[in-house]
Nucleic acid binder design. Structure first.
Lengths: 343, 343
DNA sequence: TTAGTTTATGCAATCGATTGCTAAAAAAAT
DNA sequence: ATTTTTTTAGCAATCGATTGCATAAACTAA
């Protein structure tokens, strides 16, 4: 079989004294074609080991059955789970994923967008990088007639489909939980405030303080502490204060929470007795540290599925452009040892 | 710009009173075209906001600049790192990845192969599923003129490019390390023996025993213990023996090693003093457990890069088909607390 | 100046499936 | 038996870039 030309619909047509268009119709099991000839065509297709050439179909249609995915990093639990969820649905529909990483860089993100546009993907799914402050590249996606679905880190500027977490609500829950456990001075580790998810988490923190009549202490709020290293640095500063916090809500990520835990251990502070720690994302390791870390599960696999379903619902929908644009998924607070002061 | 037709090379040609073929040549910056007209073409291309239509180019060429990747699961550290490494190189070359998951199922793997063949990808990179005992689908890849690169879990039946770890060598090192630490009865948790990687790891275990004149005790070798649950089950059986092992080499994965650790903790066995544990894969969590787990780093990102480089080296090579087919990457034993008996 | 060579550009076919339109055939209605 | 409707199948254009071949233009060497 090697180097032999692939069989095309023309080969099948010729063999059966039919026209290629009939073969195409038979293969696409939709339009006008008699059952008899359909069966005949399907049989000879199998006999000749015919394989559908998607390149040709794609060119003709003007787009391919492919969804481009742009994420900051694929080897982060949250994003690889999103992809897993996406893949599960899209695979069933005969669609493929092209995965791109922006590496948190705006330039790379723009490049990714352009290559995906060149590829004529049907849809682009994106969670914007931390450095992305412009949205021209996203507008360009829409201008090229490509569906755009944002998730998690979304920009409010654009009226596109969005799948997000209710960050504010769950952050409020998390901080309320800390308060209920008896913590009195709760610090916040913030992420870059140009990303709305971090603004929302901060809002949840503030809302919880207000709800429980806690006074807002600006010195307990640390900006830009969203990696393990930055989290550790911020923790050091916090714990060296005259009146240090007795709990830290690392709203940025579990990695940052891990930084907190390591600094606390080094200083000999007992967690959760002397310091409560709450992370964000439910990375697998949070269940394995000592103590295990309270965190927020973002329902990432389910988010991925939701994104895919949103797309297929839209393209299969009668009233395109009228389907609800925003889906909010409720994250789940996972309470573990690192905050169980009351026991 | 919305809904407006994209500019094609014909539009550019018309505007400049040139032929589309010249435009094509100018854009592909290779063949005979004068610098003057090239510049002219490039400028008008930019002016008209021309975007290269890959679908058309792909159809013409007969394949797209895409590499299909089939892995058992993408949300496993090893595989997502492989993809990260692959992506880094392929992206630079203007190639894209289509990611598919076999979910360890043979049927799904065959399906993935077929869709990738339909897509006319240039290359398929695969690590076969645990259930794959046939290789017809892999032969089919070759028959369709598509490059096939196997990695990690490879089948010896086919003479294709392969990027693998030296599993046997590092397994021998790992077991030798256990012996050096003073462990006397070392158990082995095996993976499915139809996968060569697990056969090799077992071979390394046996070789180390032989090298140090340890007697081979079949009762210490547990088959098919390659998940956390199965690892825990096997550990329970081992520790309930009259003469239980004092070390366990979970050659299958860190998840299985985690199962061992959890059972040991439950039984109140001290690790590493009473039980040594060595895992495999260097999952991030192994550094975070208490005690941290000794394991093997498979150099996954570097493996991914190697795979990509192998492909580009071959297609850019003068003597195709004559480049070395197998690249073996030396994994690295990461010694952590779970095996430090001697201290 | 002329023959010979190199370089630049045009022409036209090609990749293979899709689809609107048309025509023929079959089925249904009168 | 004839007209109308419905099915079924064919025709041919189309998607847009690529590329072998041919020709024209420019340049080199004798």
């Amino acid at each position: 079989m090697k180097n032999q030309k692939r069989t095309t619909i023309y080969d099948i047509a010729k063999k059966l004294n039919l026209n290629a268009s009939s073969v195409s119709r038979a293969l696409n099991k939709n339009s006008n074609i008699s059952e008899a000839t359909r069966k005949l065509i399907l049989d000879t297709a199998k006999e000749l080991n015919y394989k559908h050439n998607r390149l040709a179909a794609d060119l003709r249609r003007g787009h391919n059955q492919t969804i481009g995915v742009i994420v900051p990093r694929i080897n982060q639990n949250f994003f690889s789970n999103i992809i897993t969820g996406l893949e599960e649905i899209t695979y069933q529909k005969g669609y493929h994923l092209i995965i791109c990483q922006s590496n948190e860089s705006y330039e790379k993100e723009v490049e990714c967008v352009n290559t995906l546009i060149n590829q004529h993907v049907s849809c682009i799914v994106i969670s914007i990088s931390a450095e992305s402050n412009h949205t021209d590249h996203l507008k360009s996606i829409i201008d090229h007639g490509i569906q755009l679905i944002q998730f998690d880190r979304v920009t409010d500027d654009l009226d596109t489909f969005k799948v997000v977490n209710d960050n504010e609500q769950v952050s409020m829950e998390a901080v309320s939980h800390l308060i209920a456990e008896g913590y009195k001075r709760i610090a916040l580790l913030e992420g870059p405030q140009n990303l709305n998810i971090f603004r929302q988490r901060k809002a949840g923190y503030l809302a919880a303080l207000k709800l429980h009549n806690f006074s807002l202490l600006p010195e307990l709020m640390k900006e830009n502490a969203w990696t393990k290293e930055l989290g550790a640095k911020a923790t050091n500063e916090l714990l060296n204060m005259a009146e240090p916090p007795d709990a830290i809500f690392a709203s940025t990520s579990d990695f940052s929470a891990l930084g907190v835990l390591e600094v606390a251990s080094k200083k000999g502070l007992k967690v959760p007795e002397e310091l409560g720690i709450c992370g964000y994302s439910n990375e697998p390791f949070t269940a394995l540290t000592h103590p295990s870390i309270t965190t927020v599960d973002q329902q990432s696999i389910s988010m991925g599925k939701t994104i895919a379903n949103l797309y297929f619902q839209e393209i299969e929908s009668e009233n395109k452009g009228k389907n609800p644009k925003i889906v909010s998924i409720k994250p789940k607070l996972i309470i573990r040892s690192s905050t169980k002061k009351s026991n």
